[in-house]
């Protein structure tokens, strides 16, 4: 079957303004949108740029907006679009570098600012630290994050507050806040309790809807809000 693609194009070396270019790809219903992109680049137009690597939703390279919905090109199949035209655009809220390639640096800085690593002061035991299955289960959903940027790209609150750290950073905040082995609970909770952190989330649930790994992102943010209120009192945003 022939599928029509309309793809966002912008080359900073040549273009003043972005444009959209049309392509037609011969494909099968079960093929991935990424397979179509590859066919376009390899057979029709080598000037097209996008990121990809694992092609099965583990590495997180090919986050983009597909017919208006953020997701991974390797996880969406041609048949999901019922033969309609497929519109491919870079992730919103990210600076565009070329075509579908966006600048990930700011996004990663926001994640890194959440100190996404275990912080402990007590020396580790000789063997493993003990952690019961119930405690381990608290992080079971959030450790699926692959840093693809789909949630942050999709989040309407990013338009309302460009200083918002974004849902992905909060997933990583949650990851270590609720890890029973971590010893910086209060400090982590304080960092989350910020107008540009959990309190920028207005429960649009777009992040949850688009997450390619099925992480309950909004719910995780709400659990942090509840934890903040429980620990610091009911007054809401602290600053």
């Amino acid at each position: 079957m022939d599928v029509h693609f309309k793809i966002f194009r912008f080359d900073p070396e040549r273009d003043r303004e972005p444009c959209y270019r049309d392509y037609v790809v011969k494909t099968e219903p079960h093929e991935r949108i990424l397979d179509c992109l590859n066919r376009i680049k390899w057979e029709q137009d080598g000037t097209l740029s996008y990121r990809m690597s694992c092609a099965h939703g583990v590495c997180g390279s090919d986050g983009m907006r597909i017919n208006g919905v953020c997701g991974l090109a390797c996880q969406k199949l041609v048949k999901d679009y019922h033969g309609d035209e497929v519109l491919l655009e870079p992730l919103p809220h990210f600076r565009i570098l070329k075509d579908l390639v966006v600048d990930m640096e700011g996004f990663l800085e926001q994640v890194t600012a959440m100190q996404p690593y275990l912080l402990t002061s007590s020396p580790p035991p000789e063997k493993e630290r003990l952690q019961g299955p119930a405690d381990r289960k608290k992080v079971d959903d959030v450790i699926r994050c692959i840093l693809c940027g789909s949630c942050t790209g999709a989040c309407p609150a990013m338009d309302e507050n460009p200083q918002y750290v974004g849902p992905a950073a909060l997933v990583w905040a949650y990851r270590y806040l609720f890890d029973s082995r971590d010893e910086q609970y209060t400090e982590r909770l304080r960092a989350a309790d910020h107008p540009n952190a959990v309190w920028s989330c207005k429960n649009y649930f777009e992040c949850t809807r688009v997450c390619p790994k099925g992480i309950p992102v909004t719910r995780s943010i709400n659990l942090m809000k509840r934890e903040i209120k429980k620990v610091f009192g009911e007054e809401g945003p602290s600053s």
């Binding site: 690593y117 000789e126 063997k127 493993e128 003990l130 952690q131 019961g132 450790i143 890890d179």
Partner: peptide
């Protein structure tokens, strides 16, 4: 090597008594 990974924070699944 595995204990070292655990100490760094790798979220291994656990036995009922909390071991890896």
């Amino acid at each position: 090597a595995v204990y070292e990974l655990e100490h760094m924070g790798v979220p291994f699944n656990r036995t009922e008594d909390g071991r890896i």
